[in-house]
Nucleic acid binder design. Structure first.
Lengths: 203, 203
DNA sequence: TAAAACTTTGCAACGCCTGCAAAGTCGCAG
DNA sequence: CTGCGACTTTGCAGGCGTTGCAAAGTTTTA
């Protein structure tokens, strides 16, 4: 890897670190691009050649992990049913997101949960990976109906998003989170009709 | 209703109409707040006492319909199972969104599908109504496990969002949309395990 | 070592959004 | 109907995110 590329990587990291640190110290909207640039020792203009917006810097690490998962997802044990593959992918993603809990993991989560605009962007990312799940799904079972694949991906990602967000917001430990996700997967697999509370009438 | 309130309603509508019209004519980012204000015959500053941001004006009508649905959802025939109630609510929402297809309905959809930032905000709205579904669900079956309710809402809303978005993007007519939604509901109710394509292994 | 390719920087500008205080409008009590 | 209090509109000034452009600086290649 050449010097040029090494420097870019380094600068990117410097900017992201400075940003997260300042967000932690003074808060998100109290930190300006100029502040971040100064702390990272680059010009304000340079910030934007590394991140398209101030909001994106919050997702820098998450995006990296997500990209890794997408690479790894291609490796698939033979003989798996698509459902089993999906289950495996879900757990890989969860582990990846948990691994994103580096120095600033907790801060990122808190920032996202607190700012509506960051939440919106997080949801957009979810939606984009949902698209990816659809592709993966039609790849695994080429004969599947398109609308079916779309619904399945939507329900799967939607259900997972809901549990994980809840676990994050409630500060569940990894163990408890895993259990909750497992339960969530069961519900989505067996259907809402399998939940007793939903199927008997209420007065 | 006093003159004051009538005027406010009128101004709000004037702003929204002017905005949508200009977005249609020149495009979203090519239209400035100043343009909208001028077309609606108010000062630019006034725009922001009616809508918190430029993006929100795109959702003005959708938000109104959604609020109506939330009102109406309270009326519930006795003896329904929670699952039946949910099914009913889903169709009410779909009809409401279809009804939002006023003069500018198609434009709104197109704008949202084309701009990532608007898409993000649309997803945030989905997420907010998901919260509402959780509340509704725990109201209907008070004994339900909290995490279960969250997962169910997530899967339901996620699945519906996915189909509806797809139908919108593909320009399905109302009939076809309804069929697709019906099928989607069946999948979510009976579980991903009920889809044959997912349960037999692939080589 | 010089040219080519790429990166950083400063500058100027646009447009969204906000706080504030002055001016205008409406509703109501006397 | 008149004047006072409540509410709405407006203009102004300014902060901030974001972008395009061209000059200056750095790394790679020939």
């Amino acid at each position: 890897m050449g010097l040029r590329e090494r420097k870019k990587r380094q600068t990117r990291r410097a900017i992201a670190d400075a940003a997260l640190r300042l967000f932690t110290e003074r808060g998100y909207e109290e930190t300006t691009i100029a502040d971040i640039a100064e702390a990272a020792d680059v010009s304000p203009r340079t910030f934007f050649s590394y991140f398209p917006s101030k909001e994106d810097v919050v997702f820098a690490e998450i995006d990296e992990r997500l990209a890794e998962v997408r690479e790894g997802v291609a490796r698939r044990p033979a003989g798996e049913t698509p459902l089993q593959s999906m289950r495996r992918i879900v757990f890989e993603m969860i582990d990846a997101i948990a691994a994103a809990h580096g120095e600033y993991g907790a801060i990122q989560v808190q920032l996202i949960l607190e700012r509506p605009s960051l939440q919106a962007r997080a949801l957009k990312r979810m939606n984009d990976t949902e698209q990816h799940v659809v592709e993966r799904l039609t790849e695994l079972s080429p004969d599947i109906d398109e609308v079916d694949a779309i619904v399945i991906a939507g329900a799967l990602v939607g259900g997972m998003k809901a549990v994980i967000t809840h676990c994050r917001a409630q500060g569940y430990d990894p163990e408890a989170t895993r259990n909750a996700v497992d339960r969530a997967l069961a519900i989505v697999e067996h259907g809402l009709g399998s939940v007793p509370a939903l199927t008997h009438p209420v007065p």
